[in-house]
Design a protein around this nucleic acid. Structure first.
Lengths: 172, 172
DNA sequence: CGGAAATAGTTCAAGCTCAAAATAATTAGC
DNA sequence: GCTAATTATTTTGAGCTTGAACTATTTCCG
């Protein structure tokens, strides 16, 4: 039924010759990777909602602003969060309404909007980020420091590989 | 500035005594993990859309049905995909409209609905799954077999750790 | 048996997400 | 200087997602 039953030597030969590679191991790895991030992401959403009545997209946007001291141009936020520009517009709209950020047009180029955290935004973010660190710490608790290091390296390698693969895929 | 500069012996002592752990390395790892899955997921969405005019949630649901020969109860799909029940209802509704699946109430318990793939659904899924494997293969191309093995193990460990951490977090 | 509790799904309102089209402002080329 | 192309963002329409409230059905147990 499956190629895993047959002699590995023959399998390798036929595979190269005619059979399309099945990428079984890669697929399993992708599923496991997805499971991990879904588990973590869902837990963060839940906690953010229960503890702070806040959403993950809003938190993620604030996190970008925290890292960049002098505010960020909308397009830059979109790029960093890997979401569409229209999406950023909508989230900023809501953060504006809740008073976490301000939006100002750049005088020298009135097309571009700069988003900045307000003082209250900064305070609220700090409280959430502290807890957020605890949640992550709790979920990653079963990993040794060496595991963390190793995962960082391997995922770095994967990131590079994925970027290259996407580039190749776009040319099609 | 950071605790990484100081003597590790002193650091460990103060950390336990008073300073809240900052979980810096864990946080960086989580961000990298998230970047990887977002990159991969976005690419799969894009290809699914461009090549087949299909969405990832629909594809994921079909993938669950493919694995389970005799159809699946809605609640089981919800659990496996880690999404809400209402969400599954909506996606099944659309797959029903496009003819990829059927939905039948179980005679012995009329509350439960069983979803099954149709012949056309199975055919459409096969075509997409084949391509899907190629996309994954391309993106994971830069990883050695040993890397894949290693990542599987480490992510398995992470998965266990995360599940345990979530359980501890729920008790709060 | 008969009502209370549990279980399986659906509906709903709000928010997130995208791609495509539209708008507005700037820059480039003649 | 004036039009064309480019750039930054917003708008729009469709689909995904959630938690909470609701409906329908089954099970529990007195």
């Amino acid at each position: 039924m499956s190629t895993t039953d047959v002699d590995p030597w023959i399998d390798a030969e036929t595979k190269v010759a005619e059979a399309p590679a099945d990428h079984r191991a890669e697929l399993r790895l992708w599923l496991r990777l997805l499971t991990c991030s879904t588990l973590i992401e869902n837990e963060i959403r839940r906690q953010l909602r229960d503890e702070f009545d806040f959403t993950l997209p809003r938190f993620d946007l604030l996190a970008q602003l925290e890292k960049a001291e002098d505010g960020l141009v909308l397009g830059e936020v979109s790029k960093r969060l890997m979401v569409s520009a229209g999406n950023v517009t909508a989230i900023v709209e809501r953060l504006l309404a809740s008073g976490h950020v301000t939006r100002t047009a750049l005088p020298q180029d009135r097309r571009t909007q700069i988003v900045r955290m307000t003082e209250e935004g900064r305070k609220a973010f700090k409280a959430m980020a502290d807890e957020h660190g605890e949640w992550i710490g709790r979920m990653f608790d079963g990993l040794e420091p060496a595991d963390i290091d190793h995962l960082m390296n391997l995922l770095g390698k994967l990131k590079t590989s994925v970027r290259a693969g996407i580039k190749r895929g776009e040319e099609t």
